[in-house]
Design a protein around this nucleic acid. Structure first.
Lengths: 252, 252
DNA sequence: TGGGTTCTGTGCGCTATGCAACGCATATCT
DNA sequence: AGATATGCGTTGCATAGCGCACAGAACCCA
């Protein structure tokens, strides 16, 4: 249990809460480490804990028998794992895996269920986030179907960077391939091109983004529209993306 | 406005309601025709009416710029269009188009919002259905990515048949291709094979299913798992699928 | 220092699908 | 009856992505 990040990076959904509900919520939370690769919950089971990432991020993935899992969306400090709780159900819709290590607020299922009864703002915010998640889900579906590896890879890197709060993170080609539902050498080629064009730089699993603006151009529209949808419903940008918006004037 | 179907085919979600809430709900509903091809709502807009199909069915589709829309899921008399209302939002997550003509109960946004305040069972049922929809959404995403045309076509036909409550419906190859997000001649080939093997029969947009059991074998797991997920949360099967379960003992 | 492991680069053949076009058959309209 | 539109079968060509396989490079550990 570490608390060092609390002051600098926190969870945007929690920030949106009015002070009273926020304190009430946090009183029931504890800070936990998100360890890379850990499976936080499985489809067809029930939640025991819910997570509000502060740093690090979590993927929701769907698995079809005989295939590698396919990532549906990423949850970082702009979101929450287990938002379907707002429906009064503790069922898990998809497998959740930690893809970027970090820290998160964790709360017990029962406690959150209690809180939801008494906290209208919490209900409202989680409802909105659930809606955003649905839209992203369908967007991701179409994206995975129509868009090409290069674009999807670019999108993925951008989204990870937003949530990792760092220009550098640990990702092997194999790992990326699994997320995107493509074969490893496909990623190698796409990433190789990006490296040639100096958008990114990597070696043995350490990827760093060198030209974010160009990467954005290389990605598909889905990156921006996911952000837009979130903004539209969940108001002010996260501190991090706000900082970016300021330094990246004139995005298409 | 036609009411001929009310006595025979009705909406399963409504059936699940206790009598009191059901009557209250229906008092605010009116029966409308679902006309083939009509767009009931657009993404990024707000609902004005919500629909509980009785016969006929509605597709939720996502559109990416430069591509044909991709179908994410189908709503028939087992479901509802606009279930995200249970989140207290009247935003539309995806475009909705009538794919099989029929009739539906229709209710005004404001009225449903009122009702939701006073009807705990309605809230519960719609919450569960929303959850099911999310799971189906992610399933569809993976399915569209990994599975092949033949399987997906078979699944689509089965799902349509379930919701059309008839062995025969109007579908051109072009139309199917658009739904599945593939090219038309791909469908022609796949459908041609099915016709050869006497699973289906078609001519000029009239498709009829001749061997449902075989079609099920030809489809991917996604068909069955969508049903399972629905059953798991929304209890007793629809009259229609119940009839089928009885006549199709020993499904894998 | 050396051997194993992990990560990455690359090549080859194949399939599914995309795009485009043509022609025939059937339905619909006037 | 003739003209037009629609649905369907087919063909040809281009290519993205797959599966597989192998080799080099960087790293790790003993």
């Amino acid at each position: 249990m570490s608390t060092h990040a609390e002051s600098t990076i926190t969870n945007h959904l929690i920030e949106l809460l009015p002070a009273q509900e926020r304190l009430l919520l946090l009183r029931h939370c504890e800070v936990v480490e998100l360890q890379f690769g850990i499976v936080l919950c499985e489809h067809n089971q029930e939640y025991r804990h819910l997570y509000f990432p502060m740093s690090g991020f979590i993927s929701l993935v769907t698995k079809l028998s005989g295939h590698k899992p396919l990532e549906m969306c990423v949850i970082g400090n702009e979101g929450m794992l287990g938002v379907t709780m707002v429906l009064g159900l503790s069922n898990v819709p998809m497998q959740a895996v930690v893809q970027g290590k970090g820290t998160a607020w964790r709360i017990d299922v029962g406690e959150l269920q209690q809180l939801l009864r008494h906290c209208p703002h919490l209900r409202k915010i989680l409802s909105q986030y659930l809606f955003v998640l649905m839209v992203q889900l369908s967007q991701s579906a179409a994206c995975a179907h129509f868009h090409e590896i290069d674009q999807r890879l670019a999108r993925w890197l951008l989204m990870s960077q937003d949530r990792a709060h760092s220009n550098e993170f640990h990702l092997t080609h194999q790992f990326l391939a699994d997320m995107l539902g493509v074969r490893r050498s496909g990623v190698t080629v796409a990433a190789g091109l990006m490296q040639q064009h100096e958008l990114i730089q990597y070696s043995r699993g350490k990827i760093s983004i060198t030209d974010r603006t160009a990467l954005k151009r290389a990605s598909c529209e889905c990156y921006q529209s996911a952000i837009d949808e979130y903004q539209r419903l969940l108001g002010k940008p996260t501190p991090d993306s706000a900082r970016r918006l300021l330094t990246e004037q004139g995005t298409p």
